[in-house]
Design a protein around this nucleic acid. Structure first.
Lengths: 217, 217
DNA sequence: GTCTATAATCAGATAGAC
DNA sequence: GTCTATCTGATTATAGAC
């Protein structure tokens, strides 16, 4: 079963490793970043089911087979996009000034998610697809990102409840889920379609509804 | 093309038309109702994209080709399920006692939608699918149902704002969309997965979050 | 690693006998 | 109207040359 052709690369004299490999790796990462950006946009536009791998390849400008050299399945493509958005989330949360109040940080986080959604940069995945869920659960980078974000938000939630700014009768986990749900709130699109509100006004409106409630105060 | 066997029913003396035709029509409607129920359940379980026409046929217990004698496309199947759920919604809204307050009726409507979702009886459709949207928009029964429900809810929203129980700084359309969004709120499923809350407690929690807001009062 | 070409599968829809 | 069998097209994934 051994090939008769020697595929061993010729031993080169002495250029140890860092520069050349780093350059090639950078090219690779740049291309993969382009792929992830295309996937992210398509996931935001059409969702996972409607997005096709052909579309992704066409958007990136490479052949479909080349995509599969970088990512082994459509699910892996989606997972890469989710890892990317979680990294952006972590960066944003880190950028929030420690001087702000816990409730202020929570509002800022919700606002950030909604702005991303309205900007068409928030990937949306079906929560029922089991093979997709399995891929995500098995992706350490993604799970770490979720954990990290949840820890930060969870700390603010507890602090906000302790200083009396957040409703103390709500379990922290319910508050956390309610905030996460702003990333896929259909009210955002509906308001954009039916009203002639500007995006910032839509966000203000939904943010007010979320934090102040429908009831009169 | 005429069959050699006479399948014409023997002319009976004098029973003009209603009973026999009505019987056949009733059989037809009964079968179509079975189809709609299967579609409704599958749409609630897996969503439109993941639901296959083969599954629907298998659930009903008929051949796929027979399905297409009743409904001309997968989109029409989904539309029939939506018409059905809108009829249930109209029936529920009509059943609300006129003695209750407007805000009480709005809360009851939100509660009803969430209960249906947790019971696996609320069909969920992708809001981006354009051909599906076109089918729904072209379905008079569905559109009439949406209009009717929106009119009823809209009247309560206005009344609740006038009597000071509902936040008057929110546009009525935003309130309406916020209520509708409870029918597909992912927080419901998430709470069911992570907490060991009973369904009724989950509904109370989300209802409180929706009407009272995250902020402390 | 990138490409073209193709395999393999699956799902929506239809043909035609009964 | 219901069935079996099939068509058609779309989509995920891969083979193999360069």
């Amino acid at each position: 079963m051994k090939s008769s052709i020697d595929t061993t690369p010729p031993k080169l004299p002495k250029t140890p490793k860092p520069p050349k490999i780093s350059f090639k790796a950078q090219m690779l990462l740049a291309r993969e970043d382009a792929i992830v950006q295309a996937v992210n946009r398509l996931l935001a536009e059409k969702g996972f089911d409607a997005m096709t791998v052909d579309e992704v390849a066409a958007n990136v400008g490479i052949a479909k087979a080349s995509l599969y050299k970088h990512f082994s399945s459509k699910e892996e493509l989606a997972a890469a996009a989710m890892v990317h958005i979680m990294q952006r989330a972590q960066a944003f949360l880190s950028s929030l000034p420690a001087s702000d109040t816990p409730i202020g940080n929570l509002r800022a986080a919700a606002r950030w998610m909604m702005a991303l959604k309205l900007a068409g940069e928030m990937p949306s995945l079906p929560s029922q697809n089991s093979t997709l869920r399995a891929t995500l659960m098995g992706n350490k980078a993604y799970m770490d990102g979720v954990m990290d974000a949840s820890d930060r938000l969870g700390a603010w939630i507890e602090a906000a409840q302790q200083n009396g700014s957040l409703n103390t009768t709500l379990p922290p986990i319910a508050v956390l889920y309610t905030l996460y749900a702003r990333a896929c709130d259909p009210v955002l699109e509906f308001l954009r379609l039916n009203d002639q509100l500007k995006d910032d006004d839509i966000i203000d409106l939904v943010l007010k509804t979320c934090f102040e409630g429908l009831n009169s105060r």
